[in-house]
């Protein structure tokens, strides 16, 4: 097991390197001069002097390999440069805002799993029944409604019409824990809806498939009771693909935080990215994208390890 975790960690580190390199290549291989592209807006040519200054500032005049080394070095030391907008180090904003985004992600994953797995399992057992049809309909709608639509409608209904929830905002946990959690519920719950749909559907499909497996028949042939078969043989095995899907959905989940933090004025890292992109604040964008991508790789590592704990075959195959 430890060997497997070490192996997966190594793979994750390799992926981080790939991510950092990919970001670098993307910046330099997209046709055109980044400095010029950054300064031009809506077809108006940029001021050549400003371009030259920016080129100097971004280090674009150095040979590509030197730029690459500087890029890697910056990443390793956590130095993403200074923001174009206010001149403060990018890493400061990241350190401040990352925990808030993590809160949203964790809350959403938790909510989605707590409601998704049992409902999916129930729908599978009652497949083709009324409850199944209802859950299926709900999850289809939830899956198809983009988070910002859900968020806007939630505000419309709960904040504006019913006035039972605030329309968004943020209070630090240390100041008012209850209010903090109440405000967290909005973005986390909104992101959770689409994820819930995915987990419910996957749980249903997975449980249905496991129910057809020979070993469930064996469990019945042993004379075991329903709930024991369901717990030990059906749900436990069905969770493995669900977890894999959860890992695959991490990207969508992170994307969801970008929109949701914007919608609910949640001062996390993802929402900040939008402002940075809007202002075309190059160092900030690069810093945040790399941070979140590393987070993405790390979350996938966690999913892999938990999966290996559930399925003894995995650690054998790869380690």
């Amino acid at each position: 097991m430890l060997r497997y975790i070490a192996y997966r960690t190594l793979v994750a580190l390799f992926l981080v390197w790939i991510v950092v390199t990919a970001v670098f290549l993307l910046l330099h291989l997209i046709p055109g001069d980044p400095a010029e592209l950054l300064l031009s807006q809506g077809g108006i040519a940029a001021d050549p002097e400003a371009v030259a200054a920016l080129r100097e500032k971004m280090g674009l005049n150095a040979p590509l390999w030197q730029q690459y080394i500087a890029h890697m070095g910056g990443f390793l030391s956590g130095d993403f440069g200074e923001s174009f907008r206010d001149g403060t180090p990018v890493i400061g904003q990241i350190a401040l805002r990352l925990p808030r985004t993590l809160e949203v992600i964790a809350g959403a994953a938790l909510l989605a799993t707590i409601f998704g797995v049992p409902l999916g399992t129930y729908a599978a057992i009652r497949a083709d029944g009324k409850a199944d049809a209802l859950i299926s309909l709900l999850s289809s709608v939830a899956l198809s409604t983009p988070v910002f639509v859900v968020g806007s409608v939630v505000i419309l209904i709960f904040a504006q019409e019913l006035k039972i929830l605030p329309a968004g905002g943020f209070v630090p946990f240390s100041q008012n824990p209850l209010e903090h959690l109440k405000l967290l519920l909005l973005p986390a719950g909104t992101v959770a809806i689409a994820l819930w749909a995915v987990i419910t559907r996957m749980s249903r499909a997975s449980v249905l498939e496991v129910l057809q497996r020979d070993y469930v028949r064996t469990a019945r042939a042993k004379g075991l009771g329903r709930s024991r078969i369901l717990r030990r043989h059906v749900v436990r095995n069905a969770l493995i693909p669900v977890l894999t899907v959860l890992g695959l959905e991490m990207g969508t989940l992170i994307g969801g935080t970008v929109l949701v933090e914007f919608v609910f004025n949640w001062p996390g890292l993802s929402g900040y990215l939008v402002a940075a992109v809007d202002a075309r604040d190059y160092p900030e964008v690069v810093g945040i994208v790399m941070t979140i991508s590393v987070l993405f790789v790390f979350l996938n590592l966690v999913v892999d390890v938990v999966n290996a704990l559930l399925d003894p075959r995995i650690s054998l195959v790869k380690s």
Binding site: L26, P34, Q41, I254
Partner: peptide, 16 residues
């Protein structure tokens, strides 16, 4: 390796 929306944002940052 990159979350999808982030990649799109990155491209938009560069190309507008």
């Amino acid at each position: 390796c990159l979350p999808p929306l982030l990649l799109a944002l990155l491209v938009v940052t560069i190309l507008g």
